[in-house]
């Protein structure tokens, strides 16, 4: 038993193990999703995250050990974000054509994302620190963490909210679009990027290349605008409800 345990301890520190398991989990999630004909709750990211969390809890492996191994996958988020420039460039003409509607939707969606979180949170009696951590939930993780810290929130909680928001958004997008009859692929993509940042963008790319491009654009612009607006919105919120 002891030797087996020592062996496992040694093996669990080999990065390739966690990289392979992460890819395998995504493969299983993706296969399930395709097999179920695209049923939203079987979102591949959601399934693989749940699979891996169960495995880690079951084998008593702490998260930092997993993350140290799977870090190379995490690091690829940087270049993948840069790669979003390609679909963006190929849709540039349409971005120019629809500049005004896109700008208005950006402003509206950004404020809606912050204010709806504050209003719901206030209604459900969340603490001030939780409100500050949940307000930037719609923007990509590095921005949200910096903003939450600045606003007096909890950084790790903020990062968790961002990921949960992204998964929620990716899971609920298509049912929402169907219910509200949102058929315009630009509107679909842009809303996914606005509400659910990168995870939403990975979902938008599955819908169409155009949706992916506008999702990436919305994600980037919302990150910038939220950085500029969050302290203003939070400040006026506290002065009214604080």
């Amino acid at each position: 038993m002891n030797t087996l345990w020592l062996l496992w301890l040694q093996l669990s520190h080999i990065p390739a193990f966690w990289i392979a398991l992460t890819l395998l989990a995504f493969g299983i999630g993706d296969a399930l999703y395709v097999r179920a004909g695209g049923f939203p709750l079987l979102n591949p990211v959601l399934i693989s995250v749940l699979l891996l969390i169960s495995l880690l809890l079951f084998t008593h492996v702490p998260y930092p050990v997993y993350f140290a191994g799977a870090q190379p996958i995490h690091m690829l988020l940087g270049p993948a974000t840069v790669a979003l420039a390609i679909p963006l460039y190929s849709n540039l003409q349409r971005v120019r054509d629809y500049a005004l509607p896109l700008l208005l939707a950006l402003l509206f969606g950004c404020v809606l994302g912050i204010v709806s979180a504050l209003a719901c949170g206030q209604l459900f009696g969340l603490s001030a620190s939780s409100l500050a951590s949940i307000a930037p939930k719609s923007v990509t993780t590095p921005i949200a963490m910096a903003l939450a810290q600045h606003a007096g929130g909890n950084v790790s909680l903020a990062a968790g909210f961002v990921i949960l928001t992204g998964i929620c958004g990716a899971v609920l997008a298509v049912p929402i679009f169907r219910l509200l009859r949102i058929e315009h692929e630009i509107a679909q993509g842009f809303a996914l990027g606005m509400a659910a940042h990168g995870v939403g963008t990975s979902r938008a790319i599955q819908l169409s290349e155009t949706a992916g491009a506008f999702s990436g654009l919305a994600m980037g612009l919302n990150g910038v605008l939220t950085s500029l607006l969050l302290s203003v919105v939070l400040g006026s919120w506290w002065s009214v409800f604080g």
Binding site: Y98, L100, P101, L102, L104, A105, F108, G109, L112, G113, S116, A117, C120, G121, F124, G125, L126, S130, I134, K137, S138, F161, L164, T165, C168, G169, L172, A173, I176, F177, L180, I182, E183, H184, I186, A187, Q188, F190, A191, L192, M194, A195, A196, G200
Partner: peptide, 25 residues
């Protein structure tokens, strides 16, 4: 309370943005 806030706010943000943008487009 946290999870409900997150879920409701995400739905409102996505639905509101998509609906308004489609209307404008």
């Amino acid at each position: 309370a946290l999870l409900a806030t997150l879920l409701i706010s995400t739905v409102i943000t996505m639905a509101g943005t998509a609906w308004m943008l489609q209307h404008l487009l």
